[in-house]
Design a protein around this nucleic acid. Structure first.
Lengths: 219, 219
DNA sequence: AGATATAATTTGGTTAACCTAAATATTTTT
DNA sequence: AAAAATATTTAGGTTAACCAAATTATATCT
């Protein structure tokens, strides 16, 4: 089996997540930003990943994962999200604390560990942030969710995911008392700033800025 | 807080475990063997560990952990053994499968993770091989165990630890049906080769070579 | 004590990942 | 289409860990 270093895995993951957002071209610049390194360093590594047949690469179109590369990237994401699920579910971590540690754990190499962890957790489809966990064969479950800011007035909705996993946003949600699975009822939309008046869990009424409502996914 | 690399941690661990066996001097040679690297490389690293005040070091007496270095080494051992306990206890691993993976997991950095894992496992004192797990403050529990080969005839004993964690020996024990916690009754000792006839769990009788009995710890 | 064996160190490499600054491409704007 | 802006690559350099071969200490043996 081919050996992929931790650093290489991080590149693949960066390309994978960048490709999901901007779709088309994944340039050196973007990868450099994601990994907080100098663009000059990226060229070198992309060439190596190309040699290893993990990406297609040329100056014009940037980097694109091959089937091999995609498989590796998805596996890393799978590991990351399963570990996050474990940390929150069994080790009393909150959703804003788990990212860093999962960044380390995602590189542990053992297929059996991965399978057993999945089983132990009950083959979860989504992690504590609502992000989908690829299954063993690489298939990624889909949620037909919308962002809250696009919801119609008078709809009863369930919070299923957040579109921003920074600790500051997650702490803000905690402070507002919003968690995954909560039922939200949209009462009013302010015309002038797009902020929402919502009823949370049939109890409290709170205001959410359009900014925040753009990062909350509902179903 | 001082940053200690994975490689440095492995050196500290090697020095720690070597010091436990041979007591006195831990030479470059021995460290090199433990880590499967060239002795020439060891000199360099020991100098760095000395500069970081993690070891005392001079040509005559070799390497010796400082209080700082000992603390770091014990923490790594603690992590290693807690993870092994987790793998066997919750993820269906057998005791001969866990070492490699624990070698990776022992380098994950997060104090909260360590504390929570300990709590989750119920603050175990010993890992699946019977090795003591240092507690949070670094204290290492002691078992007043003996090696089976030194046991007297007619004694009822409990298997508490193995003095050889290689997969081949652990598999041998599994095949013989011997596990930690089993009660052993010594019936006979063969004079000519020191092998033992023992009764296992009050049921089966089996022969154990002196070789094997030297690696089984009982209480 | 001197010869021999063993252990440690020095010397002069290598590789993976990074860096900065300069040079070259490629887009985008005017 | 030329100028300006942006993106990529090249060139030359660094650091952490390693190596092999040669050298220098230290220990052991006769």
């Amino acid at each position: 089996m081919m050996i992929i270093s931790v650093t290489e895995e991080n590149y693949l993951k960066a390309i994978f997540s960048a490709a999901h957002l901007s779709e088309s071209r994944v340039g050196n610049q973007l990868i450099a930003e994601k990994l907080s390194i100098n663009p000059a360093s990226v060229t070198e590594m992309l060439r190596r990943l190309h040699d290893k047949k993990l990406i297609q690469y040329n100056r014009a179109d940037g980097a694109k994962l091959t089937a091999q590369g995609l498989k590796s990237a998805i596996k890393v994401v799978r590991k990351h999200r399963l570990w996050e699920t474990f940390l929150v579910g069994h080790l009393n971590f909150t959703w804003d604390e788990v990212h860093e540690i999962a960044e380390q754990l995602e590189h542990i190499q053992s297929d059996k560990l991965l399978d057993e962890l999945d089983r132990f957790l009950g083959n979860p489809g989504f992690d504590p942030h609502g992000d989908p966990i690829p299954n063993k064969s690489g298939k990624i479950p889909v949620l037909k969710s919308k962002i809250l800011v696009e919801a119609e007035i008078g709809k009863k909705l369930k919070v299923v995911k957040v579109a921003d996993n920074t600790a500051s946003f997650l702490k803000y949600l905690d402070k507002q008392g919003i968690a995954l699975g909560d039922i939200i009822f949209v009462k009013e939309v302010q015309d002038f700033d797009g902020s929402l008046l919502v009823e949370l869990k049939g109890k409290r009424e709170i205001y959410l800025s359009a900014e925040a409502a753009r990062k909350i996914m509902v179903e």
